[in-house]
Design a protein around this nucleic acid. Sequence first.
DNA 1: CGTTTTATTGAATAGCCTCAATATCGGTGG
DNA 2: CCACCGATATTGAGGCTATTCAATAAAACG
Lengths: 243, 243
Amino acid sequence: MKVLDSPFARKLSAFVTLSEDDLRALSDLYGRRRKYPAGRDMSHEGQKNPVAYILAEGWVCSYKILPSGTRQIVDFQIPGDFLGLRSVLFRTSDHSVEPITRVEASEIIASDLLEAFAKRPRLAAAVLWAASRDEAMVVEHLVGLGRRDAPQRMGHFLLELGARLRLIGRGTKAGFDCPLSQYHLADALGLSSVHVNRVLRQLREDGLCTFRRGQVEFDDYDKLVEMAEFDRSYLDHDGPLLK
Amino acid sequence: MKVLDSPFARKLSAFVTLSEDDLRALSDLYGRRRKYPAGRDMSHEGQKNPVAYILAEGWVCSYKILPSGTRQIVDFQIPGDFLGLRSVLFRTSDHSVEPITRVEASEIIASDLLEAFAKRPRLAAAVLWAASRDEAMVVEHLVGLGRRDAPQRMGHFLLELGARLRLIGRGTKAGFDCPLSQYHLADALGLSSVHVNRVLRQLREDGLCTFRRGQVEFDDYDKLVEMAEFDRSYLDHDGPLLK
DNA sequence: CGTTTTATTGAATAGCCTCAATATCGGTGG
DNA sequence: CCACCGATATTGAGGCTATTCAATAAAACG
């Protein structure tokens, strides 16, 4: 019953009711499991091999590099997340993917995926739900970059991560383990790493949360939610319409 | 042969070869055509009626309002663009939609769409391509907010709009008609309207482009491309894999 | 342990914002 | 057709946020 308890299954089950058969179909999907070392890119912008994965273990980020050399991280993937779902449907991936920790990922064969969708509509619905949630997160990220100041952005980001991790049993309202460096935070939040450091200090001194040595602690969860104007409804919207 | 020359068909045809039959199936999709006045929202955040449209005429924007009252525009839709494709698949739309000009849009019935997809895979592929391009634009927008300064952001934005409009025959390398106010630009680019004004002046004085009285003129297209580091490859990536 | 990466802090600066005032545009009704 | 009005655009002054440069400290790694 390993699959039933995989991060992927846990995440989906939280929003779409999946039968035993659905979950079994899911497990059949999993192809070869591969490991990737931290740091070396798994795929590059413009690359042309349509492969998708489900992250089983570890964290990765998707990013773009600008001509000036600066980097913008678009999103992070944690265990249970899809990786490159879009690049299965389209030839080129338009961003690069870097593993932040050592990563284990199960390859998904595009044709298998489509077949499983045809046979098990609830599974298809669940995966589409996940894809839609990912898109909602990107939109929320965009809104934050455009209209939130640094402390709010940071708070919002940590709260979102926390909520995602709780869903797969890797975090609580008290906090979570986080392998991100301040450079990662800077590149995700559109800030300089220096300022990230200052903002983290601010949050710590204000008794909102503490990020130290790979560990995020929510010192006052509710106050942080209020300060960051974190409204998690975009994360747990209803599942797709099932007829 | 009206459909063959609709903005939507023009856009799709530029990247996926569509047969006469494909285009006819497309035209059958179009439901009632509706008009909406400028200014009043077509749909609100959290609304629960899954309707999708294809924009036939006019401009709209999708945005989110923060608790503080500020607004972040996520993207603009121009003739030929899909509207609310996601809200057909999911119950709630997570953003609001405001028509910028008077708008004409054709309602798309969700079930019709899925039916047409089953019968005409190339059409499905084309629509998926369009959806993927939209997502790529959102990502590029995010990158701009995170890592580009105001003049670059503005230049990039105008160039992208120009490229999109050219695709539907509403613009050239010389410029295009643009109904956006400086407030729209500000809310899209994450700037204050005051600063938008200054940036536009800067671009004008530098001989890059002129935005005045609803008209964008590219005074030196190549120089603007260089200054904004505009790489349009995300806009015209290959069509989807067709077996 | 030495070496590299990551974190921390200070000082000076640049970019963008807010507030506020004025000008211009576009439409509307007399 | 003109006078008026609200919406949009323009410009200045001053302030705050986040940046860059630079130097040091602390962890992490082999």
